[in-house]
Design a binder for these strands. Structure first.
Lengths: 341, 341
DNA sequence: GCAGCCGATGTAAGCGCTTACATCGGCTGC
DNA sequence: GCAGCCGATGTAAGCGCTTACATCGGCTGC
């Protein structure tokens, strides 16, 4: 109830339980052999004093932080909360704390994130953002810290990769639009400097080629993966001489922006124009009309990222691995037959 | 490039810079007097070795963790990301790390969150969720750790409170609906066990009384602050003998659920029924029609929470304070004149 | 010319844990 | 009956920092 006399540490607990600090430590950590009666005395003392071991001292003493780093771009981007949650839940269940940092799409801030990770001596890092920092990767490698990336380059020693199967879902979507009679299919890409945006774009181009549809540069516009960017890009798309009958967007926010632009021009979705998003964020079910989109499970990404890290940590394999995450078309109401021309 | 010889610690740096560890520490922390030439030698060594001080050792040595705890319910609830981001940005700018934990609306998990905070020796905690844990509050008080709550009870020693001015925005909304001719105004409340939901509800009742509108129990239904709950509650509301002409919802997700229910029944918003949400999450701009709602700035909440904590930490005032956050009606397209009966 | 001060730096204890190693009974097995 | 083992516990060093205190010149001011 009242204040504590000086510092509540393991020694106070040991004194109260009439054992040594080693026994307190062993009891609380469940290592070594402790007589049940002794353990009870220790736990009683812990409870009576409301003792919580100092995590810093624990890390320092054991040489293990039990912390995993999770780097994302921006928690306000609806892509991330699910991912963070699933990663965190999995990590907590295995006794790891997590250090979550946001890069805000800013290289300087990414460097700061990396520094914080290093200072905290994280045991592994999941880099769920494209802005990879080369210096950081080196420093992590120097310290033998395992890393899991998202859609990054090659798998290496202690570097695994979560590979989203973009082409799969995008091929499905194009096939679906093709079957509905669409031949003029536009693409609203993400920012060109974003790796995952580039992959989506090239998967789109590949899909078109497969159906022998000529690629018209004016039917590809660049957004920024945000609503406003999608809206602006869609307006450009709709202003061309022969507008598309269907639009595939690089992510759902872009698609939502496009939806707005289309409706602003007095056109209807899907009667006048079909629209397909990407990601399947919760929002995409709530638009009018609900969005047909390519589903990418963020929960799966988060869980796989954690397990990839855990595998590396447990040293089961020194070498990193690829972890594929599938994508699938989810048909809702923003797509329909191509308007006969 | 290659692996390090054993452990890279402050002593290695001191050796390389030909100074004592104290001088390295002083240089890196910018305390005490260090000759510029000496400081340069130190920084050169730090860079050359890619040295990052061990945060645990730092905490232990200095007795200060420089960590602030932030407890929220669920990062996937769209209320929180903005709050987290603004809190975190403010904290980082002042040299604090943050420990973010989710209670998942679960008392057990809340207890675990509290334990993690205590083990990490956070210097202050922002509890941005209603599920307050009494035991936790006591333990924090025992350790003289400042706390900032959201919409909680009284201000006490080392406990400040962010008080959202619910009545203000709700009164505005009811006045607005009243002026549009609405007299049968329904309320979709949040879960009764949630403190902030109760405050919103009583502010609603007070608003009705002010306009001498009788309170009909059947026009108040309980949701759960999620879309599905709002949908179900709204269906009940629309099934009564004399349905309302306007609905005020306890949060935007509930309103969105209600919107769905209304449209499912072939009714139009706002022609047949007006709808007002609460919170002004980004989503509320994207529904069809965009939602009239009562705005509550999560960014402001996050920033004020941090500054409240900082004030307590700096010991400017031992006693906690109240920090009001205003709410305001934002008129969009989900509200209109009451249908003449 | 020298006492005294102050800036610059070093020494070493201490923070609160973990854990290798030591110790010490009591029991097992021949 | 006793060597040897093992379970239970304690001792104390060590983890990597910070910081109080000590030290040591050189300069200031009379």
């Amino acid at each position: 109830m009242s204040g504590f006399e000086r510092n509540l540490n393991i020694e106070l607990v040991a004194r109260k339980a009439k054992v040594s600090t080693a026994t307190v430590s062993r009891t609380m950590n469940g290592v070594g052999n402790v007589r049940p009666e002794t353990a009870k005395r220790v736990w009683d003392a812990v409870r009576a004093l409301q003792y919580h071991p100092n995590a810093s001292a624990r890390s320092l003493g054991s040489g293990r932080s039990r912390i995993l780093g999770l780097i994302i771009s921006d928690i306000c981007n609806p892509f991330f909360p699910d991912l963070v949650k699933s990663f965190e839940d999995a990590a907590l269940a295995c006794g790891y704390e997590i250090l979550l940092t946001n890069t805000n799409y800013d290289p300087d801030r990414m460097a700061r994130c990396a520094q914080r990770m290093l200072e905290r001596r994280v045991e592994g890092v999941a880099v769920m953002t494209s802005e990879m920092d080369q210096k950081m990767m080196e420093e992590l490698a120097n310290r033998s810290i395992p890393v899991v990336c998202l859609d990054s380059g090659a798998v290496e020693n202690r570097i695994s990769n979560i590979r989203v199967q973009y082409p799969q879902g995008i091929a499905e979507a194009i096939q679906y639009l093709y079957d509905l009679g669409h031949r003029r299919i536009a693409f609203l890409s993400g920012p060109a400097n974003l790796a995952s945006a580039r992959v989506r774009r090239s998967a789109f181009l590949k899909g078109l080629r497969k159906h022998h549809i000529a690629i018209e540069p004016e039917l590809i516009q660049e957004g920024n993966h945000r609503i406003a960017g999608g809206e602006a890009a869609a307006h450009k798309l709709l202003a061309v001489s022969r507008p598309p009958t269907a639009i595939l967007a690089s992510n759902d926010l872009t698609a939502i922006g496009a939806l707005r632009a289309i409706q602003q021009r007095g056109l209807r979705v899907p009667e006048d124009i079909s629209l397909v998003g990407f990601d399947d964020i919760e929002l995409s079910q709530l638009t009018g009309p609900p969005l047909t989109t390519i589903q990418l499970s963020r929960t799966e990404v988060g869980q796989k990222a954690f397990h990839a890290l855990l595998t590396l940590l447990q040293g089961k394999s020194q070498r990193g691995e690829e972890y594929p995450v599938e994508t699938h078309l989810v048909v809702r109401q923003s797509t329909g037959h191509a308007r006969s021309l």
